[in-house]
Design a protein around this nucleic acid. Structure first.
Length: 595
RNA sequence: GCCAACGUAGCACAAUGGUAGUGCAACGGUAUCGUAAACCGUAGGUUGUGGGUUCAAAUCCCACCGUUGGCUCCA
């Protein structure tokens, strides 16, 4: 069965599910029931009733019962007015039909399932329930009507369907396997990071091994930036409220910023609810850009200095709703690998192209070949969400698209996904459950230069407004490490592994030589660790394998005699003894090659 | 924030209203061992927190906190 047919079948199963829900719960208001990547869902309004996972088996039973009757799917077309009459007890369907009318439709179609369920639907569907393979309802969730949190929350049931039982089993097996790659699980097992409510939600801390991964990434990042013509700048963690009012962040995001820090008030004053006489207000930075702008504005700038490429790994804080937090991929405090490029209009395109190349280079070095690129544009119907004039948006969106085309990025356009200050190109990487996380991003900003009145003197001696690009290659260290762990299922490439080699002794007589080998490796910057505990070799190997350490070096009498190490390589098993110096050369070469 | 499920030792789990238990890890000992788990022993708990029901609560009820999957949001 090809994908198109599978989707048609799944969509029909969603109708079947709706029919079962109607049979079981009677007064149901139906919303929508589309196909999604791995299956389908349907949204229902069950009045005050909410569904829980325990309700799913009986819905499944009812579905099977209905499917057995070999009911036909039959299409019917109605004029708008007749359609509205038909669904006069279905407010959501009425709304959908009215929208179709607004879009210019004169007729709409319905699909009937036998004579038990009928639904507004464009189709197509399978001929009858005979064509349904196997299905399973997976989970329930609340979902706002039309995805708007001001609307009523409906009950959503997710399910999936396949042609054969074997396909379904494989899918369920795949989900189970995915759980093992989860960075939260691996982060705990390998002791990489910790999120603890005593410190605060969404505020990860790093154990030595995790901090080492970070450090290796950061070192590589700095080197590549210097090679690519960037300079480094640094800025503080807080900035005055005035700064954020000028930048527009306070206006657009005050709900998502930590509340202001007020100083100039003693503890006694605060207890007595006495106002400070001289009050200063600071905000934790949610972004690095305003600081870079202030640095830019510190003196008059000449066109000869442009483009300026200023990079900083800056830690920012954003107060995300508790329900939105997730491991390392969605946090409240995170470090962006940020940079701002300030340039003239003429230079914009070249700079964008350069960044696009830089992103591809960075992602591929870390082993990501499979990611989705989105061109996030303004929703012209919703202009109040955006700063800046139409002319600015048209220019920046056009040039962004040219860049994406020239770089042959296989991108998707998304209306309404732009930042408030400009369009952006987002690179999203999937986690173990197939959820996409924005990592690299390239953003146009024609808002900040305006708000901060940035200028440079051009070759005519006239003042000109520069353009500003924001970009991050990892996005944030936290999220990138999260997706990296899942991508490699915890077995990071040698160059990124916090421990590159573990040395294991056979017996206590070999401890001294182990120490010598360890020191030899450290001397050449190889991240080595000793395990000379009083344990069996088998057990020590087992522990090292579970930790996904790339090289395990076993040392006994034979190795001491030959100045060698017995090499066991991750994924390849025992490779036999190797001369110590040769091993050092080999591992150094592999590290340098970013294997 | 909203819908649902879940929360027992560092970790993985057991105990269905009647004495909180197993394995791994930790610690102490013995064994000196050659490529994924040596053996014996010790310690570890106000069962997320707070209330309630009951002679009796890990177990039932309520609230809160947290986690997970969705929804919303993501500069």
């Amino acid at each position: 069965m090809d994908r198109e047919k599978l989707d048609i079948m799944r969509h029909s199963v969603s109708h079947l599910m709706a029919a079962a829900v109607k049979e079981l719960y009677g007064d149901v208001k139906f919303a929508i029931g589309p196909t999604i990547e791995d299956g389908f869902y349907y949204d229902f309004d069950l009045g005050k009733k909410t569904l829980s996972e325990q309700d799913l088996p009986k819905i499944e039973e009812k579905m099977k019962e209905i499917a057995k009757q070999n009911l036909k799917f039959e299409r019917e077309e109605l004029k708008i007015a007749d359609a509205l009459k038909k669904v006069n007890d279905q407010p959501y369907k009425q709304e959908l039909i009215k929208d179709l009318e607004k879009e210019g439709e004169k007729k709409v179609s319905f699909y009937k399932l036998g004579n038990i369920f009928e639904d507004l639907c464009k189709g197509p569907h399978i001929k009858s329930t005979k064509e349904i393979g196997v299905f399973k309802l997976l989970r329930v969730s609340g979902a706002y009507w039309r995805g708007d949190e001001r609307n009523k929350m409906l009950q959503r049931i997710y399910g999936t369907a396949f042609e054969k039982q074997k396909d379904l089993d494989n899918y369920l097996k795949m989900l189970e396997e995915a759980e093992k790659r989860d960075h939260r699980k691996i982060g705990k097992e390998q002791e990489l990071f910790l999120i603890d409510k005593t410190v605060g939600l969404g505020l990860p801390m790093w154990f030595p091994k995790g901090a080492l991964i970070w450090r290796v990434m950061e070192e590589f990042w700095y080197q590549e930036h210097l090679k690519n013509g960037y300079e480094l700048v640094r800025s503080p963690h807080i900035g005055s409220r005035n700064l954020w009012e000028t930048s527009g962040h306070w206006g657009f995001f005050s709900q998502n910023m930590y509340p202001s820090l007020e100083v100039g008030q003693t503890l006694e004053d605060a207890k007595a609810a006495k106002k400070a006489e001289v009050k200063e207000e600071y905000l934790l930075k949610p972004m690095n850009c305003p600081f870079h702008v202030i640095l830019y504005k510190a003196r008059p700038r000449s066109y000869r200095e442009l483009p300026l490429r200023w990079a900083e790994c800056g830690t920012v804080y954003r107060y995300e709703k508790a329900g939105e937090l997730s491991g390392l991929t969605r946090v409240r405090g995170f470090t962006q690998d940020d940079a701002h490029i300030i340039c003239s209009k003429k230079q914009v395109k070249t700079e964008l192209l350069r960044v696009a190349d830089f992103i591809t280079h960075m992602l591929s070095t870390f082993g990501f070949k499979d990611y989705n690129v989105y061109l996030s544009l303004r929703d012209p119907r919703n202009k109040e969400k955006y700063a800046g004039n139409d002319e600015g948006w048209e220019f920046t969106e056009k040039i962004m698209e040219e860049v994406a085309d020239e770089k042959k990025l296989n991108y998707k356009k998304e209306l309404g996904e732009a930042a408030f200050y400009g369009p952006k190109l987002d690179y999203k990487i999937k986690d173990c459950l197939g959820r996409e996380w924005q990592c690299s991003t390239l953003q146009f900003d024609f808002n900040l230069p305006e708000r901060f009145d940035m200028k440079f003197v051009n070759d005519q001696g006239k003042e000109e407004r520069p353009y500003m690009l924001h970009r991050a290659l990892f996005g944030s260290f936290e999220r990138f490490i999260g997706v990296l762990i899942e991508h490699y299922a915890g077995a990071l490439p040698l160059w990124l592994s916090p421990i590159q080699a573990r040395i294991i002794n056979v017996g206590s007589a070999h401890e001294k030589y182990c120490q010598e080998v360890h020191e030899r490796l450290l001397k050449d910057g190889i991240r080595s660790e000793l395990d000379i505990l009083n344990e069996t070799v088998g057990n020590k190997i087992r522990k090292a394998e579970k930790e996904k350490i790339p090289f395990i070096l076993v040392v006994g009498d034979k190795e001491i005699a030959a100045k060698a190490v017995a090499v066991r390589k991750r994924g390849e098993g025992d490779k036999g003894p190797q001369d110590l110096e040769k091993f050092v050369d080999m591992i150094k070469k592999e590290i340098a090659e970013k294997k």
